[in-house]
Computed example of a mutant assay.
Amino acid sequence: MARLREQMARDSEARSLQESRELQARTAAERQAAVSELGNVQRGEWWDKARPEDIGRTYATAKAWEGQDPEAASARQRMENELRTRYGVDVNNHDADPAQVQALLARMEAERIEGLAAEERRKEAQERAEAESLLREGDQLDNAAERSAAAAAYEPDPAEREQAAAEAETLRDRATETRDESGQSYDSAERRSETAASLEGQGFAERSVEARKIADVSQGKPATEAVKQSRAVKARKGRSRVGSGKQATLDR
């Protein structure tokens, strides 16, 4: 029994050492992946295209790893500077909480998009009104053309009859041109309506992001606390069976 206990102790120590090495390797791989992702924040083009959820997630990653890697600390500093200069957001006013920062950026983006949508709706209404005005003008020109055509048909003076016929033709051409312009204004109004609807949908999506605040971002933890281990030991039918489980997770 003593020899068995000694052997079990040696086996347990060997497993612990192997698990420790695997955990270290996994943590190193996760840190490398995080640092690789954080390199994006040093590029201006990333900021030009980044959405609030991208910024919130990446800021959470920088905070999680800043104590483990100097590049993560540098990335956090760069992000806070960019947030201040690009968006006027001081993270210290929001407890440096990635979820709060993300929600604020989502609200700002939603307001910007909603402003664009409102401007498109205003121009849509203006162009529809213009199209209707042109259509009425086309009808008036058609009526004038008919009157000139009637005058040409019944005017006894040949010169005046010719002049009235020419005037009727000119009025018909102007009526056609005016209706074409009216159609173009209607088409433009329809395009603006579609654009506004698309923008309104984007604004709604941004509001949804703001409302959710994304749980994994708001629950971001330091990397040293995010890595956990668990072990279990079972005994069955008189045989000792040592089992181990391990889990390494990173809130990012």
Rank of each mutant, 00 (worst) to 15 (best):
A110F: 02
A151Y: 11
D173F: 02
G201W: 08
K123A: 05
E120I: 00
K228F: 09
R172D: 05
A166H: 10
A223V: 12
E190I: 14
S208Q: 07
Q140K: 07
T195C: 04
E119T: 07
G203V: 01
A226N: 10
E225S: 08
E160S: 02
K221Y: 01
R136T: 15
A150I: 12
E146G: 00
R192Y: 06
Q229L: 15
E109A: 08
T170F: 01
V227C: 02
Y186W: 11
A168V: 15
L171G: 04
S198L: 14
E162W: 09
E119L: 11
D187M: 03
L134P: 00
T195N: 05
E194S: 15
E155L: 07
I113C: 00
R191L: 12
A149W: 01
A211N: 11
A189Q: 07
Q126W: 05
A144I: 07
R207T: 14
D187W: 06
A125R: 11
R121L: 07
T176A: 14
R179W: 13
R212H: 05
A117C: 05
L141S: 06
A159Y: 07
E111Q: 15
E194M: 09
R212W: 10
Y154L: 02
S188P: 04
Y186V: 06
I113W: 03
L134K: 01
A166K: 08
G203N: 08
Q140M: 06
L134G: 02
S133R: 10
G183I: 14
K123G: 00
V209A: 05
A189H: 13
E162K: 11
A164T: 02
E155C: 12
G201D: 10
V227A: 10
Q140G: 01
Q163K: 14
Q140C: 08
A165G: 01
E124S: 08
K213G: 02
R231S: 09
E146I: 04
S182A: 15
V209G: 06
A211K: 09
Q219V: 11
A164W: 02
S208T: 08
K123E: 13
A144V: 06
A159R: 05
G138M: 14
Q140F: 04
A165F: 13
A153E: 13
A125P: 00
S218L: 00
E111A: 08
E132V: 12
A150N: 10
E146V: 04
R121G: 01
A152W: 09
E146L: 09
R192D: 02
A168S: 14
R172S: 08
Q163W: 11
A232T: 06
S230K: 14
S185I: 11
D139T: 03
G115R: 12
Q219Y: 03
R212G: 01
R231I: 15
E167P: 01
E114G: 05
A149K: 03
